[in-house]
Each structure stands twice: as C-alpha cells, then as structure tokens.
Nucleic acid binder design. Structure first.
Length: 615
DNA sequence: CCTCTCGAATCGGGGTGAGACTA
DNA sequence: CTAGTCTCACCCCGATTCGAGAG
C-alpha cells in the first residue's frame, strides 16, 4: 500500500481537516469536551502529530521502516458486552408435559422459540444444525430426545407479550432507557488515534443467537455462543492504559500493540473459529477516509490504463493459438470489465454455494447464437445475477469452447483462479485487482451520466437526474433489494388515486364548459350538488388535478422501477464522492439533497474538491 | 372550504453481521 | 494459508408524511 504521489501535495494535512470535522460533529453529539486526549502521553503526541503527519507524508518513502504503520498512538476503552441472559422460567412442553431446563438450556430454547414464524422452521438443515447444538447442551441423557416432540409455544407466547409490553411503553420510558444505554456506551464510542478523537464503528460484542446464513447456508441454525472477555484480543498503543474489563472477575485474552493494523479488538467467530470478528473505527474516521480516498484514486488511475488493457484482452481472445490460460484470462477480464462481475474466490463446503467470475460453472452461462450470452447464477449473499448480454464474437466463441466437453458443474474457467487473475492484472497496472473495475465502472458511469444528462432546471429536476444515474450504476453492480411486502398494495392504491383524480378531472372539464355558458356544474359522483364556481377557479382546479395525476404517475413509475434496485450500496461503496460534490457545486444543488448525515461524515475528505473535478 | 389533530402508513438511517476480496 | 479490510442486504425503529375526521 504505497502513498500516491498526489497525496504528497495535499493542501491541508488530513489531521487538521479532521479537527474541524470533529468539532462540527461534536455539536450534533452534544459533546462539550474539546477534541483533546486526556492522557498525558497523548498530549505530547497531539502536538507532534500535525508535524509528523506532514513530514511523514512528504519525506518518508513507501517501503521505509514505517511504511506499514497505520498509527502512532492509540487509546480506546475496549468493547461492551451484551447484557447477561435473564432466565424467564417459562417451560416448554415435551410430549405435552412441561420440562425443567437450566438457564443455559433455556437460553438456547428461547433463541429457537422466537423464530417460530420465520421460514427457517421449514428448512431441514436449520433444524438439524440447531438440534445438534441444543442436544449437546442438554446432554445426551436428557429426557428430551427429539426436537419434533418439543413444543416451544409457551416461550413464543411469552416473547410476543414482552414485545407487546415494550411497544406499549410510553415515549418517556423509552427515552429514559435509551439515555441510560447511551451513558453506559459513551466511553466505548470513541478512540483517540494520534491524538485525534475518532468514532469507533462496532464496539458492541455480537450477542449470542442462532446463525442465519444467506441463501442455502450449510451452517444455518448453529448456535452462535456468547463471547466472553477471555475470547477477546485488544490492540492498543504501547503507552495507552489497558481498557478495563467490563465484566468483573474476568479478563481479556491478550493485549497487543500492533500499529501496522487498524483493528482495536478481535475475537474468533464462534461459527467458524478460523475466522475473526474485528472492531474497527467508524467509516467517518480519518483512517477509513484515507483508504477510501486511495481506493478511488486507484480506480481513477485505471482510466489511464483502461484503453491499453482493453486492447490487450481483445488481442488475446482473438488470438486462438495463445495458450488457453491466457485466453481464459482475457475473457474473464472482459467480463469483469464489461459486466462488473466480482472476482469469485474458491469457497469450501462449509460456505454457501455462490460464484463469481473465476468460479462460474458451465451451467451458469448459456450461449445464444449469434453472439448473446445468458448469465444466471447466485452471487454474493446468494443474490441472483440474471443477465443476457451481447458480446463480441470472439468472446462468444471462446466461451463456447471453454464449455465444450465439460459437465454442467465444472468450472468454465478451469485454468483460472483469483490469484492468477489478479497477478496478471497487476502486470497491467500497479495495484490493479478485479474489484477495481467495479469501482471504476461505477464511478465513471456516474461521472459521464451527470455530465451528459444534467440540464438547466430546478433543484428537484437535477436530483432526479442524479437518481437516474445512481440507478444505472446500481443496475450495473446488480445491487438488489427484496420487493417490500407492501409494494403491491402501494401500487394498487396509487392506481386508485390516479383513477379518481382522472374522474375528477373529467367532471371538472364538463363543469368548465357549463360554467362558461353560465350553467351550474353537474352533480358529483356522490350525487351532491357542487358549488357554482367561476371558469377561472375551475381552470385552476383543473391545473392542480393535472399536476396531481402527473405526480402520482411519476411516483408509480419510479416506485415500480426501483422496487428491486438498491441505490444506497453504490453510493456508500462505489461512487467517488468527489464526483457528486463537484456536480453539486457546479449545479448549485445542496449536497444534503444527495448525501445524508452519515455519508457527509464519511465523505468529509471529499468536500473541498474542485467544482471542475472529473473522475 | 380550510385548518388542525391524531393515528396509521411509509420512509429513511443506523446498526448489524454475513460474505467477498486480497496482501 | 491466515489475517485484515471492504462490501452488502436486511432489520428495526424513530421520524415524517398521509389522510380521515373534527372543528
């Protein structure tokens, strides 16, 4: 991770920007204390910091001893644990009879009971995994020998009542509880990084529960056990005080002082002990902002290389004598570039069966002559990717050949994996990997769309232009959302409203004609006599009715259009915020119309961009 | 006819935790 | 490989808007 040359000429050191930012956010957070660390060790560093950050970025070359260092001092308060389980003592029935459970057994039973009305109850895998874990906790010799004979209804009903009680609570009570929680959590919300107070992202330890994977996950239903202090490793500056363990009588697993990483704490994932859960700083922090900026700078760099890269892969898939690996790389790169596919790492049996570019199976693509390819597969989060695209003829032929002689379940790109692909990409441009194409294509699309489509008009119209561009990007990236449960009824109601409005309009037009001739208006649909109005007044009403219809129709088309498209994801992860900020500046659109509070905080680093900025 | 009020519907944002990518 | 970081959709809850009815 080398520092880009254009960072070196940064006008302001990032730290000073964040100071400003910190003080402005502190207002909203009712923070009265200035952004100053309270420990002496850090007082010293606060002063050094501005200077050292400046000099570091101007003098220290990548690869030097401190090229890996992410911070110099780090102070934080560790993590907060979910409250302990409160036994309710409600008994489940086994073969119709109430059964006593220990609090631990009861806790797991409760996790299961509350999922009664979800569709997990229909999934054999879920039931099997849950039963295995619960049985272990019950002990092999427990009277309960079969999940099927258990009746969890009493716990479920109790849980429903509790939920109801919570709902019934007055706003004051709710507020008081929230206030108290805030007070407890306040100290965990902040870390002091190089003397600057920064927000911590996820300082709450994940509560125990039953694992719910996305799609057909082999581990669904497994018990995610409670995490204890002894599971948690803390990372903190050498001179910083060790965070106090919030559970009396217990202690942290380990204290580390690793300044080459950005995590504040981690623990092993109880579902997959080989994996880890980390506590990081929030997206609005300088550390995250910096790497975010680097991500977009890398994507921008691709702009200068893309022409050659495209020329190269076009040459490669045209060249039939080339070794198959090269040809597969060329086609894969083409797909990643053109369709913004993900790289597609190999996955083992323990994970849901989803694919990306390198792991596409023969059955996921279908060649439709003369030159169309139909893709149909489950991608990340088991989201379906379904798309039929026209491709260049050599690509069409090549894919046909890759499929030839293979079974449905074999890899389309058998000579390829993500590391080979990325190794190849790195030869084309320093630091280039598959995911850079997604960022590049998303951002360049937004930039072009905004440039081409924005016309003179009022703010609302310009915002619509932005949303349209945003939608295009979301479609490219296949960012989907499930259709809301109430979508159909919403559409229905809009249709009804349009109908009644049209009916009204019709009557108004008749009334207008009559009014012009001095006749009274007709009776309405309800049979009541309407008032006499002047033609001008009726005209006004007609205009407003027309507007209403237009608005409803607009609402309906956008609603229908966007019912399965999620706009937020690309805004947060793929669109260079400087494109948006510059566009807002040029067209006098208030940035708040596009970015909400958290995006504004996250993209603080992009706010002073030149209005003429192009991606 | 207009304005206000109140409950319901809807929206939007933060949080969450699983999933993917890469050095 | 493992460790570390980035991505991503869903969920929930509070805020806002809507719409019916009262005044």
């Amino acid at each position: 991770m080398s520092t880009k040359p254009n960072h070196l000429s940064e006008k302001k050191p990032l730290a000073s920007k964040l100071q400003q930012n910190g003080s402005s956010t502190s207002n909203t957070n009712k923070m009265k204390t200035p952004v100053v660390p309270n420990k002496k060790a850090n007082m010293k560093n606060t002063k050094q910091m501005k200077k050292s950050k400046f000099s570091k970025s101007t003098k220290v070359q990548p690869g030097s001893t401190d090229g890996q260092r992410k911070w110099t001092t780090l102070v934080h308060n560790g993590v907060i644990f979910p409250p302990p389980y409160q036994p309710h003592g409600i008994k489940i029935l086994y073969k119709g009879k109430p059964i006593d459970l220990t609090p631990e057994q009861e806790e797991v039973a409760t996790m299961y009971a509350v999922m009664k009305d979800t569709d997990y109850m229909q999934k054999p895998k879920f039931l099997e995994n849950f039963w295995n874990d619960w049985r272990r906790i019950l002990g092999r010799n427990h009277v309960i020998q079969k999940l099927d004979d258990c009746d969890f209804t009493p716990i479920y009903e109790w849980h429903q009542q509790e939920k109801e009680k919570k709902k019934q609570m007055s706003t004051e009570e709710k507020k008081a509880i929230k206030e108290q929680k805030m007070q407890q959590e306040e100290k965990y919300m902040w870390a002091i990084v190089d003397g600057v107070k920064e927000k911590v992202g996820n300082f709450r330890v994940e509560p125990p529960g039953l694992f719910r994977g996305r799609g057909e996950h082999p581990k669904m239903g497994k018990l995610k056990r409670r995490i204890r202090p002894r599971d948690i490793t803390i990372n903190i500056g050498k001179d910083a005080p060790v965070p106090e363990c919030p559970i009396a009588g217990e202690s942290w697993k380990e204290i580390k002082h690793d300044s080459t990483v950005t995590w504040l704490a981690f623990w092993n994932d109880p579902i997959n002990p080989k994996e880890f859960k980390y506590v990081f700083l929030a997206a609005s922090s300088s550390l995250k902002g910096q790497s975010d900026k680097e991500k977009y700078e890398k994507a921008r760099m691709l702009k200068d290389y893309i022409h050659n890269i495209r020329a190269a892969y076009t040459k490669d898939f045209n060249n039939k004598d080339k070794d198959p690996t090269k040809r597969q790389i060329a086609v894969a790169t083409y797909l990643i570039d053109k369709l913004a596919l993900r790289a597609g790492n190999e996955k083992d049996e323990e994970e849901a069966d989803t694919v990306g570019c390198c792991t596409l199976k023969v059955s996921n693509v279908e060649c439709i002559p003369p030159n169309m390819i139909k893709f149909d597969f489950l991608g990340k989060d088991s989201i379906r990717y379904e798309n039929t695209v026209e491709v260049e003829l050599p690509v069409f032929k090549a894919i046909g050949q890759f499929q030839a002689g293979k079974g449905e379940n074999e890899l389309l790109f058998n000579a390829l994996d993500t590391s080979k692909l990325n190794a190849h990409l790195k030869e084309l441009m320093p630091g280039l990997t598959a995911k850079v194409f997604r960022t590049y294509n998303a951002s360049i699309t937004l930039d072009q769309q905004l440039y081409e489509e924005t016309e003179e008009g009022d703010v609302a119209e310009k915002v619509v232009v932005y949303q349209k561009a945003n939608k295009q990007v979301a479609i490219i990236c296949n960012h989907q959302r499930t259709v809301s449960k109430t979508h159909d009824s919403q559409i229905l109601r809009l249709t009804e409203r349009i109908e009644t409005a049209k009916q009204e309009l019709k009557e108004l037009k008749i009334d207008l004609e009559r009014a012009k001739k001095g006749k009274p208006p007709l009776k309405g649909a309800d049979g009541k006599q309407k008032r006499n109005l002047s033609p001008e007044a009726i005209e006004k009403k007609i205009a407003s009715a027309n507007q209403k219809i237009e608005k409803y129709e607009m609402d309906m088309t956008t609603k229908e259009d966007l019912k399965t498209v999620a706009l937020g994801t690309s805004k947060i992860n793929y669109l260079d915020p400087r494109i948006t900020v510059a566009w807002c500046k040029r067209h006098e659109v208030p940035i708040e119309k596009i970015f909400n509070k958290s995006l504004l905080a996250k993209f603080a680093w992009a706010m002073d961009v030149d209005p003429e900025f192009r991606f």
